[in-house]
């Protein structure tokens, strides 16, 4: 019935929405940033533990739509073990993929995150996917204030 939406709602997204990974408060986090999408009420708190420029742990709490939940869940998986510089590169690649400025995205480099490429066709939903990553960007820059999609 929802054939048109297969690119947007891939099974991986349903899976992460049903069973979000790294969904927990991290007591020993040394970065903690809130992200908020005032248009739809998505809220998340991202926790990172960064040791010697390496993200040794990542987790989150919050509530949102399937796209935003899957996006942040996938993100916490993929950035674990990455250096800050590598995570920043992923942020830029993800942003490029979802906002679709160019056609030639290196889907291989971005790995699993490619399941979210479909949001490009749904302008109303792009921010659902990018909220997690903008929150990560703020955490990498060690910003304290909450991130909003509408500023």
């Amino acid at each position: 019935m929802f054939e048109d939406l297969r690119d947007l709602y891939q099974e991986v997204i349903f899976d992460h929405n049903r069973n979000p990974r790294n969904f927990r408060v991290m007591e020993n986090a040394n970065r903690r940033v809130d992200g908020f999408n005032p248009l739809c009420g998505d809220k998340l708190t991202l926790f990172l533990k960064i040791d010697d420029h390496v993200i040794s742990d990542a987790s989150f709490q919050g509530s949102g739509c399937a796209i935003s939940t899957a996006s942040v869940s996938l993100m916490t998986e993929i950035v674990k073990g990455k250096t800050e510089a590598e995570a920043d590169t992923l942020f830029k690649q993800f942003h490029e993929m979802t906002t679709g400025k160019t056609e030639d995205i290196n889907l291989e480099a971005i790995g699993k995150l490619a399941v979210l490429a479909g949001v490009r066709e749904y302008p109303a939903r792009v921010k659902c996917a990018t909220l997690a990553w903008h929150t990560l960007d703020a955490a990498l820059k060690n910003q304290q204030e909450a991130v909003s999609t509408e500023e």
């Binding site: 709602y9 739809c40 399937a66 749904y122």
Partner: peptide, 22 residues
């Protein structure tokens, strides 16, 4: 367990315009 924005996008794919939000 289903966010209103997902409801809105899914129904839109069926031609149904509803509002999802605050």
């Amino acid at each position: 367990h289903i966010h209103p924005h997902d409801i809105g996008t899914m129904l839109d794919s069926l031609g149904i315009a509803i509002r999802a939000g605050h």
